[in-house]
């Protein structure tokens, strides 16, 4: 509502907006602060907001007791690995749908979208049993394949919407210049689509990083990524809030930062291009 507003009203709206944003953000801030408390300070009543002995001991403890780095490593390998391989499959598919569409391309896109809507529980039993029999339970490869498959429709869709914005003339110019299909994709399309590919990758990494159905059900320790690691803190034993907070901060910080960078693409990706 761009009607002229008095400065007073603007300040009022600003204060209100900041209060609302602060309340929404508060749980994350509170986790962050708690991660620097001793366990006693963490459960102190009344709560200690800023004046306590700030300490890094929880961060060391998290690593020492539960080997945080191993889970972080799994998260990184899974979320990046699965989606790099995903891109290798999705880029050619998106090229095909954007630049060599057939009569059924639209149906195909909608079908791919619909696979994303299969609830995971529908596949839990057979996948669990298959993985058990193939010895893929708790293996990075097994979970990675599942993450790749659940993100593949999203990758193709996002890439497709980005590729559609590239003028087909330029690809045709490459063909006239004697480029083979591989060279056309490698030297012309891909470099031009770098921003789109990067934001697609970013969103896919975020979603994989936060995926907590398959990772909880298909991993136990070896291949467990951070969501499963944090879940292990749900056992109600002793004073552990500060360590939970430290572990949580470590687990969400990287993705929070990536997420903040990718906000704009996020809307497009999450709504399959329906809202831009």
């Amino acid at each position: 509502m761009a009607m002229k507003q008095s400065t007073g009203k603007r300040i009022g709206v600003t204060v209100l907006a900041w209060v609302v944003a602060f309340l929404i953000f508060f749980p994350i801030l509170w986790t962050f602060i708690t991660s620097f408390k001793s366990e006693l300070d963490a459960i102190a009543m009344p709560p200690k907001f800023l004046f306590f002995n700030w300490t890094l001991e929880n961060y060391f403890a998290v690593q020492e007791r539960s080997n945080y780095l191993k889970f972080a490593y799994n998260s990184i390998v899974l979320s990046i690995g699965a989606n790099v391989f995903g891109l290798l499959i999705a880029v050619p598919a998106a090229w095909s749908m954007a630049f060599a569409p057939g009569k059924r391309t639209k149906d195909l896109l909608m079908w791919m979208l619909s696979t994303k809507m299969m609830p995971a529980v529908g596949a839990l039993v057979p996948i669990y049993l298959l993985f058990r029999d193939l010895h893929l339970l708790d293996s990075l490869f097994g979970v990675g394949v599942v993450l790749l498959l659940i993100n593949l429709p999203l990758l193709i869709w996002m890439l497709y919407t980005y590729f559609k914005e590239i003028p087909v003339d330029i690809l045709e110019a490459a063909r006239m210049d004697g480029a083979s299909l591989l060279n056309e994709i490698l030297y012309v399309l891909t470099p031009m689509a770098v921003p789109g590919i990067a934001s697609t990758m970013l969103l896919a990494v975020i979603l994989s990083w936060n995926e907590a159905f398959w990772t909880l059900n298909l991993t136990t320790s070896n291949a467990a990524p951070l969501p499963a690691f944090i879940a292990s803190y749900s056992a109600p034993e002793g004073f552990f809030w500060a360590k939970l907070s430290a572990a949580s901060t470590l687990a969400i910080a990287p993705i929070l930062i990536l997420g903040w960078f990718s906000q704009k693409q996020l809307v497009r990706g999450l709504t399959f291009g329906a809202v831009k």
Partner: peptide, 15 residues
């Protein structure tokens, strides 16, 4: 405002 969306579900639940 957007931050909570990026938090791992298990983290938000436990926090």
């Amino acid at each position: 405002v957007i931050a909570p969306f990026f938090v791992i579900p298990t983290v938000s639940a436990l926090v």
